[in-house]
Amino acid sequence: MRRELITAIPPAEIGAILEKSGAEVKIEIGEAEPFHGMPRYRLTIEGTEEEIERFMETLRLARAGG
């Protein structure tokens, strides 16, 4: 399964979140069009549906202050 996401989270932080999640997914990071001058990144996440959801849940909690 593949999922794409555009985010302002810096690549180093994405790596830390991936490590913390323990999810077995492959993430490719590329640049996306800036939004009002703020850099954005295009994430391509590949893995099983369960592993992608595991990573996404950790990402949501990390950005929500959880």
Rank of each mutant, 00 (worst) to 15 (best):
F35R: 15
M56H: 10
V25W: 03
L18N: 11
L43S: 14
I17F: 00
R40A: 12
A8G: 08
S21A: 10
L59Q: 02
I45F: 07
E53F: 04
Y41E: 03
G30M: 13
L18W: 14
I29N: 00
E24P: 10
R60L: 10
R42C: 12
A23K: 04
K26T: 12
R3H: 08
A16D: 09
P11H: 05
M56D: 11
K20P: 05
G66E: 03
E31V: 07
I6P: 05
R40N: 04
E51G: 00
S21W: 13
Y41P: 11
A16C: 07
P39T: 01
R63L: 15
A64W: 05
G65H: 04
R42A: 12
T44N: 07
A16W: 13
I9H: 00
G15W: 04
E19C: 12
Y41V: 07
I14L: 02
E19K: 08
E53S: 05
A64H: 10
T48M: 01
K20T: 14
R3W: 10
E46I: 10
E24G: 11
R42W: 06
R3M: 15
R63Q: 06
K26M: 09
G15I: 06
R40I: 02
S21M: 11
E31H: 06
R2L: 15
R54L: 09
I29H: 01
T58C: 07
A16K: 14
T44Y: 03
E53R: 06
G66V: 01
T58M: 08
I45K: 00
L43D: 11
A32M: 03
E24S: 09
G30L: 14
A8E: 09
E33D: 09
I6Q: 09
R63N: 07
R3I: 10
